[in-house]
């Protein structure tokens, strides 16, 4: 079985501006913004990559 790609949200502050664009667009509602911390639910995320596009500053990568 192919393993899921990995999703990485750079939310240490180097790229992420904590704007919530990814949270609002996530079709599975599985990204969480807590002031300056962004997390997502690994199990629910299907790596659809919509958040990668929606991020205005390129802080989300998939590989």
């Amino acid at each position: 079985m192919p393993s899921k790609k990995s999703l990485h949200i750079e939310s240490s502050g180097q790229l992420c501006i904590y704007c919530g664009a990814c949270v609002g667009i996530c079709p599975l509602n599985c990204i969480y913004l807590d002031e300056t911390r962004i997390t997502f639910d690994e199990k629910v995320c299907t790596r659809c990559e919509i958040c990668v596009k929606a991020c205005p500053v390129g802080a989300i990568e998939i590989g």
Partner: peptide, 8 residues
Amino acid sequence: DMVGGGVS
């Protein structure tokens, strides 16, 4: 200053 966000 820099601001980002989503708009529906």
